[in-house]
Amino acid sequence: MKIAYSPCPNDTFVFHALTHGLVPGAPEFDVTFADVDVTNTAALDGRFDLVKVSYAALPWLMDQYELLPCGGALGRGCGPLLLTLTAGGIDGKTVAVPGERTTAYLLMRLWAEQSGQRPAEIVVVPFHEIMPGVAAGRFDAGLVIHEARFTYPRYGLSQLVDLGEWWESDTGSPIPLGAILAKRGVVDPRAATEWIRASVRHAWALPADSRDYVLAHAQEMEQAVVDQHISLYVNEFTEDLGPAGYAAVRELLNRSEKAGLTPGIAVGLDDLAR
């Protein structure tokens, strides 16, 4: 079975047991490592059976895939940050973003609509190049995700807005970041849900089992940052989205469709309820 997820610590922590034969009854997996901005578009051709994508990409993928209630990244206090080197907003400025269909970029667009900010140019670059680019003056601002929450002061950057904090304040909902999708007609979603939940529970119960695997793919992060990353992004919503999680996803997609930023999803928003 083909699975794609990022090399980030939260994903390797969650999927270690599943892809290393530690979940009884699960099949063998062919793993592709790719950043979420890559899988958001790569999944369009249906090449993966299970795939990690941004919630913002769901409108383009739900005709081929079904959203699973576990394994993804959704929470509180874990949203993307908009960073600058100098004071000021992003109106008329150049902003570096990690992908056009990332939830981070969708949240920035929703915030910009509400705040009246109109960037002059959006540049898509790999997320690890964003902070150095802003620090060097290549971009006026940068939209960052993942471990950048913990490391941006090292680049002399300042936080213009915490988009997760804005989202939570404006909606009362947790922040829907990354989703796990199962290919329709190929993967039994109930079975896949049980496999992934078993993998999450194994990771929590025996964190030492995945440590070498996580660190091997952590792009030279130090252990303290890896631990912070996992504790922030692997939480109760990773095991089960639950009513609050699904409500947050519906809120995000409703708002983005109403603002004309994304199309409606093929299955209908009501079908995301569980």
Rank of each mutant, 00 (worst) to 15 (best):
G156L: 10
E121C: 11
H146V: 02
L160G: 00
F48M: 08
A104V: 02
G71W: 00
A248N: 01
H128E: 06
L58W: 14
V31T: 13
A192M: 12
A148R: 03
S256I: 09
G133F: 06
N254M: 10
R201H: 15
L67H: 06
L67E: 03
P243N: 10
T86R: 14
A208L: 13
A192H: 01
R190Q: 06
Q159P: 02
T103L: 04
I180C: 06
G156C: 12
D162Y: 02
V267C: 04
E257V: 11
A112E: 00
C8D: 01
I265W: 12
M62K: 01
N254D: 06
F33H: 15
R197V: 06
P132F: 14
T103H: 03
L272P: 00
T94A: 05
L22D: 03
L143Q: 14
E257H: 13
G264L: 15
Y105D: 08
E28L: 03
G46R: 07
A259G: 12
L50H: 02
L50P: 00
W204I: 08
R149L: 01
N10A: 12
Y105S: 12
Q228H: 08
L253S: 02
C70I: 04
G89I: 11
H202G: 01
P98Q: 07
A148S: 15
G172Q: 12
D270R: 00
L206K: 10
A17F: 08
A247M: 09
M131R: 08
V144G: 06
R250C: 05
N40H: 04
M221S: 11
N40K: 07
Y152T: 10
R76L: 09
T94M: 00
L81R: 11
V38A: 12
L110A: 03
V14G: 04
T84K: 08
G75Q: 11
Q64E: 10
D227E: 15
L106M: 10
P27H: 05
K93S: 08
A104F: 02
T102S: 03
P98H: 13
S158E: 06
G164H: 03
L163A: 07
L163P: 00
V234D: 03
K2T: 14
I230F: 09
P27W: 01
E220K: 10
V53Y: 08
P243M: 14
K2H: 13
S173W: 03
D227K: 07
L85Y: 09
N10K: 15
K93G: 02
D91P: 02
V225Y: 03
D188K: 04
L241M: 15
P80E: 09
V249L: 05
E147F: 15
N235E: 05
M221V: 00
S6T: 15
L215S: 11
R149V: 02
A87W: 13
L253T: 05
L252M: 11
A259T: 12
R197E: 04
L160I: 10
A191N: 06
L85Q: 15
R255Q: 15
D212W: 11
L181A: 05
G99T: 05
I196S: 01
V23Q: 02
L106N: 05
A192N: 05
Q223M: 12
N235P: 11
A96S: 14
A191I: 08
H202K: 09
A43V: 05
V51Y: 10
F15W: 14
E121M: 06
D188F: 01
G75R: 03
S54C: 03
